[in-house]
Amino acid sequence: MASKQNVSAKSMTTLSRKKRKLTTSDWQLYSLCLIPVLLVFIFNYIPMFGVILAFKNYKFNLGILGSPWVGFSNFEFFFKSNVFTQLIWNTISNNFLFIVFGIIASLIVAILLFELKSRNATKTFQTMLITPHFMSWVIVSYMVYAILNPNYGYLNQLLALFGIEKIDWYSKPYAWPVILTITSIWKNVGMDSVVYYASLMGIDTSLFEAAEVDGANKFQRTIHIVLPSLVPLVTILTILKIGGIFRADFGLFYTVTQDGASGNLYETTNVIDTYIFRTFKDNATGNSYGLTSAVGLLQSVVGMILVIATNALSKKVDKDLGLF
């Protein structure tokens, strides 16, 4: 591992930097890009003209181009909604919890796995930890429901053993940021920790040998060598996640909460994406297509601004950090 890292220091990146004129090799490389670029153009860029729906009152019989322009009224509808602050707060605060505790949990798991000597054990544990990542939210919601059901859920059966009275978790809004954070970590900790673990595998082992000679213990080693080596990766992943802080995971917030259990949980779990879904379903605005596009556009723009801002900030702290 380590040796490979060293060799890669002189990798393709450094090759023939001076060439200026386009060569046959360049053309060959461009030709390789052609089909993927074309596919992205067709399937991602062509539909983007649809963002104009955000500024229109879409009438099916008039078509996208023929529908009347309504300026910013779709955005206004969203801003003026009485749940606007609730949505923003819930979306950001829940995502914040997921990011912070998600990173802490996966770092701990990665570092402890790294300390584990037996490769077979590591592999087995990793496989099990990653498994939840491949489950759809619908399946996860069944599991959560089986555990939390107020009458016959496993958790309440367990509580009953200790003489604690049954709790209807689906009408306790303040329990849900915790429940959702645990669920989110449960689903993602395996995958995230593998990413960190993989990066740990690349640390130059001579550093550890040196540390051992200096008489450092495992804890000191972790603080001084292991953690610092992970900083760039943590930064990059965090930047990416912050870009999505205005997007809530619909499946988590809608399915796992059983649609906010008939409103009881909205106080803490009603987020932008579930709100849009409900408004669209009930056609509550009469212009649900416009509203959906408007909010989607808003999420994209805010996401981009946040990514650029965090990126700049991280670079200010250390110019080697940052995504681009």
Binding site: S81, N82, V83, S171, A261, S262, G263, N264, Y266, E267, N270, Y275, R278, D282, A284
Partner: peptide, 10 residues
Amino acid sequence: TNINSEYTAR
């Protein structure tokens, strides 16, 4: 509608 759906259960 938003308010009503929040209070459905209650």
